[in-house]
């Protein structure tokens, strides 16, 4: 099956044509698997999560007609993966890229001594979005793929067509810039 546009894939969902699932898998399967694996740390769990996500997509389109199909799907995958992980691990840290990503950025988002209950997630999200808006596109993409998508350094480097060293350095600098921004806004 040749690569369909997002609009064509959505139309297949609306026509209840099961080719929609195949088309989704073909176009976004690899990325979604990476997102799921990054959170769950297990290939089997990631595959199950991807299957669940496709079912959820089938159930939600229609009536939804997402403007941003890739983001719509990725959010479903991520949410399902996070829920699955939470059910498996409670508050403990387990495996998966998410642990590495969290350990990289947690001191950027909050002071180590800040109590969990006092972390204002909404304010931090807003500040994060403002910060992301100031970044060059590629830098923003790298940051989002790492800390939202929990992709590995290698996966990000391959997707962006850059070296792993550049990926790491970009993330380091961006984290430091984010920390400075949060300090300036007195959120840290």
């Amino acid at each position: 099956m040749q690569n369909l546009t997002d609009e064509e894939i959505i139309e297949l969902y609306f026509c209840r044509d099961q080719q929609a699932l195949a088309a989704t898998q073909q176009k976004y399967g690899k990325l979604c698997s990476s997102i799921a694996y990054g959170i769950l740390g297990s290939r089997e769990d990631a595959e199950e999560c991807l299957n669940d996500s496709l079912m959820k997509l089938w159930e939600s389109i229609p009536p939804n007609r997402p403007n941003r199909f890739a983001a719509f799907l990725s959010v479903i995958v991520r949410n399902l993966a996070c829920n699955r992980r939470a059910a498996q691990h409670a508050e403990k840290r387990g495996s998966g890229v998410i642990c590495t990503a969290l350990s990289e950025i947690e001191n950027t988002l909050a002071h180590p001594d800040t109590p969990e209950q006092s972390i204002d997630t909404i304010a931090l999200s807003d500040a994060l979005n403002r910060f992301l808006g100031t970044l060059p596109k590629e830098t923003r993409v790298i940051f989002v793929l790492r800390y939202w998508g929990n992709l590995s350094i290698k996966e990000i480097a391959e997707k962006c067509g850059i070296s792993q060293s550049k990926t790491k350095m970009t993330l380091l600098r961006t984290r430091n810039a984010l920390r400075k921004q949060l300090e300036k806004e007195e959120l840290l």
């Binding site: 890739a70 983001a71 998410i98 969990e116 972390i119 994060l128 992301l132 923003r140 993409v141 989002v144």
Partner: peptide, 25 residues
């Protein structure tokens, strides 16, 4: 910071940034 808080913060990232990232070529 626990994973839940981290996940919540990251979940607030704008959809257009997510779209941009996942479709980046």
């Amino acid at each position: 910071m626990n994973e839940t808080k981290y996940t919540e913060i990251m979940s607030g990232i704008r959809r257009d940034y997510i779209e941009e990232a996942v479709t980046w070529d």
